[in-house]
Design a protein around this nucleic acid. Sequence first.
DNA 1: CTGTTAGCGCCTTCAA
DNA 2: TTGAAGGCGCTAACAG
Lengths: 338, 338
Amino acid sequence: MSSIKKVAEVAGVSVGTVSHVITGSVPVSEPLRLKVQAAIRDLNYHPNHVARSLKTSKTRTLGMMVPDMTIPFFPQVIHGAETAARQRGYSLIAVNSDDDCERQKELLSLMRSQRVEGILLVIAAAPTPVNQVARILEAGIPIVCVDRVPDRVPVDSVSVEDFEGAQLGIEHLISMGSRRIAVVTGPLALKNERRRQQGCREAMEKAGIAIDEDLFWQANLRPEDVAVVCRERFADGVLPDAVFATNGPTALGVLRAFRDCGLRTPEDIAFATFDELTVDDLFQPSITTVVQPAQDIGARAAEILLARIDGTATGPPATIRLPAILKVRASSRRRALS
Amino acid sequence: MSSIKKVAEVAGVSVGTVSHVITGSVPVSEPLRLKVQAAIRDLNYHPNHVARSLKTSKTRTLGMMVPDMTIPFFPQVIHGAETAARQRGYSLIAVNSDDDCERQKELLSLMRSQRVEGILLVIAAAPTPVNQVARILEAGIPIVCVDRVPDRVPVDSVSVEDFEGAQLGIEHLISMGSRRIAVVTGPLALKNERRRQQGCREAMEKAGIAIDEDLFWQANLRPEDVAVVCRERFADGVLPDAVFATNGPTALGVLRAFRDCGLRTPEDIAFATFDELTVDDLFQPSITTVVQPAQDIGARAAEILLARIDGTATGPPATIRLPAILKVRASSRRRALS
DNA sequence: CTGTTAGCGCCTTCAA
DNA sequence: TTGAAGGCGCTAACAG
């Protein structure tokens, strides 16, 4: 692998001059610049970013951690963040925590060793690891929390309007004639889930529907487990006339339970969910969804992070909430009057 | 950010000793080791991988490029590769080429500058960029091509059994009673697509079905465009009795065309596709699919790359093809005899 | 404008 | 077993 020294040698100039033409920081005369560029091409030279980073203490790299890249929401967020980062000359290195707190800790440590200049973090669902975040912040490495906003840590965050989004969904189901709506959430250890559940409650109250605690089902983010919970509930008592899931994986579990119990939607039971399940609306029945602006969330988070890095932003932590959009599809269609 | 020097100072030893306890390369006496470890904790010290990489010329980092992370297939591949890499102490840095040849070139160059030790590459669909790959190989940076195998470049590759997988799909449709099967492909510039199409042809021939060129429709990887092509064909002549799509995005386009034309599957027309469309089989009708072992493909590719890096593998390029599995679901169900 | 040079933080001989 | 010193490739003064 050829170095700047070899380029200088071939071009017949000093390493300083080569560095100048590469960085463009200092003007170089036409003839010399041409000679250097020719040498770079001939040698197939690629500046060593490792050495540059060591010298400048700038890696121009952002770290991003998500629970699971195979959940469709996250690649979209990553894509948005990556695009925004690259526009500013930054690379993004994305990793999966598998929602495992220990792994998250290791990966955060790795990122620090890799000297990322800032971190986009979707915190693991497990026991909230407040100090992991605090330690990094103390070290002067900015963090922007994405999607999931941690309790009691003052940190920038970008997420969706959980509360309002959930309200949107419930209001819609009510407007379609449902009164007994079961709300299925993931783990309530996640603030998002609590907020979304709260949004559901208030939407019901506002509509004059009495809150029935038996209709708030807590599950988790693994469709198989969610399905078990729902099957039990369905077998148990009176069927609700609608189900609202507060996130994508949970929604998949609900749908699986529908299938297992022979329930058809919307004929037997109406359904809507927070979080897009697939990229498309082709499936029958298509699912009424409160859609998050995933790419925007990623892009916005990256912009804030970059602003912290270059010192443009200096104030107290910003808490950005982007609005969700209700997409009405077939699964919530009003049932024939019975 | 504290350096090894500060740790040495606090621990009251030399930097060499600190380095020894960190790398474990040289034995250090119990008391000194303890003192060093305490200092590391107190200072919240994280070894600078940048400096280490510069010194050792080993970044322990792999690069991976995919066309589009928001296509569900790719995050699965990435996840498999990342897991395999981390088991060997390597990080993975994944980027999107957006199937843009120019962007791919830039990103490849960036990766070289970042001194990744090897590259997992899903080549851009556009004009096949053979020399981009060749140049890197010449520089001694190993590449393993994933999913898409380039023509005329001798390089390691891991992908699915395109030919056999497609055959599986067509044979199944034939067994369900279809005789006029339309095959919709993405760009035939992609070898995968050509192989899959060829698999379809031979499966038909083997079943004694005469090849009708009008039933081989070439489209691309954008569902909107695919839908246009299909709508025209559907309007045109006699409806085929089944459609087989050779990849996921193309399949989405076909389904959209079905919807737009009011065609129901499997009632009006049977359907099957190569490539999982969603993570689940919940949708009605569920789609009969030739499923790729996505995670395995990623893991296997990473293992081969790592073997090239550490010199374990030295032979000529390996061409690995992993088998696909047919999942029979509702969309190909035999239609009522008419 | 161009060249020279001192580190960036670390690992790795090599001596002690 | 421990310490001292050189140098990885590059940039950023600074001197010419």
